[in-house]
Simulated assay, not measured.
Amino acid sequence: MRLDLPAVTAELTTAAPADSGLTALAAAVRAQADRQAIADLGVLYARAVDDHDVDSVVAMYTDDGVFERRGAAATGREAIRAAYVASFDTYRTMLHTPHPGVVRLQGDGTASGWSHGHAELATSSTLVLASFRYEDDYRCEGGRWRFARRSITFMYAVPADQLATSFGSVERVRWPRTAPEAADYPETSPTWESYRG
């Protein structure tokens, strides 16, 4: 379940539990433990990707999991493995810095959320700088939270020597040896121009 605009706006305030009884307290503690486990999953994912630990990355997905990069989906663990191996073969050194996100627990062993981060990605000849968002669906299986779907989009992905000249442009996705493309956000957000009335 993706976080649409009203859902993001709703996350700007945090509701207090309806009552202060033990049942509500136990549910709040459980929810916090689940949110922390999901936050840990995101941090462990970044470390595994940076270490090119493909087995750990793949194990973070459900058997029917999906990894989607700018609309191109890899479904199932073998396809997910192949997608990450291709990335690892392209980028010799990676540093992903995840930032805090938002998680919405569904109450049935599933959750959805989003987070963002930055990365430095080195090919044999170029350093690419990137800012990205993940839209995630999670599922708890056997007491462990995993990605059911992880979708990445980019605010920018450009060679380091082009960041200053490309940042003000809409075409901020400039992977090496490819034509510049429009960034995935924020210009596509329905709020981007709305404040101008």
Rank of each mutant, 00 (worst) to 15 (best):
M1N: 02
R2M: 10
L3R: 03
A7V: 08
E11R: 14
L12E: 05
L12C: 11
A15G: 15
A18R: 13
D19W: 06
G21H: 04
L22E: 10
L22C: 03
L22W: 07
L22Q: 07
A24I: 12
A24M: 12
A26F: 03
A26S: 14
V29R: 03
R30I: 00
R35G: 15
R35M: 12
R35D: 05
Q36P: 01
I38P: 03
L41G: 03
L41T: 06
G42T: 02
Y45C: 11
Y45K: 08
Y45R: 10
A46R: 00
A46Q: 00
A48Y: 05
V49S: 11
D50C: 02
D50W: 00
V54P: 03
S56F: 04
S56Y: 11
A59Y: 02
M60S: 05
V66M: 06
R69P: 09
R69K: 14
A73Y: 00
A73V: 00
A74I: 11
G76C: 00
R77G: 05
E78S: 04
E78H: 05
A79V: 07
A82V: 01
Y84C: 14
Y84G: 01
V85N: 07
V85Y: 11
A86F: 06
S87R: 09
T90L: 14
L95F: 01
L95P: 08
H96Q: 04
H96V: 05
P98I: 03
P98F: 00
P98G: 01
H99I: 10
G101A: 04
G101C: 04
V102K: 09
D108F: 10
G109E: 09
G109I: 06
T110G: 12
T110F: 03
S112C: 15
G113C: 01
W114P: 02
S115H: 12
H118C: 07
H118I: 08
L121K: 08
L121E: 11
T123R: 03
S124F: 11
S124N: 15
S125M: 13
L129Y: 02
S131V: 15
S131G: 14
F132R: 06
F132T: 00
R133E: 02
Y138T: 05
R139F: 01
C140T: 06
G143D: 06
G143R: 03
W145G: 14
R146N: 06
A148E: 12
A148S: 14
R149V: 15
R149P: 01
R149M: 08
T153Y: 07
F154V: 11
M155N: 13
M155H: 05
Y156G: 02
A157Y: 04
P159L: 02
P159Q: 07
A160L: 05
D161N: 04
Q162S: 04
L163I: 12
L163R: 15
T165R: 10
G168R: 09
S169E: 09
E171Q: 12
R172G: 06
V173C: 10
W175T: 09
P176E: 02
P176S: 08
R177N: 14
A179Y: 15
A182G: 15
A182V: 11
D184I: 04
P186I: 08
E187G: 09
T188V: 04
T188C: 13
P190L: 15
S194T: 13
G197P: 09
G197Y: 08
G197D: 04
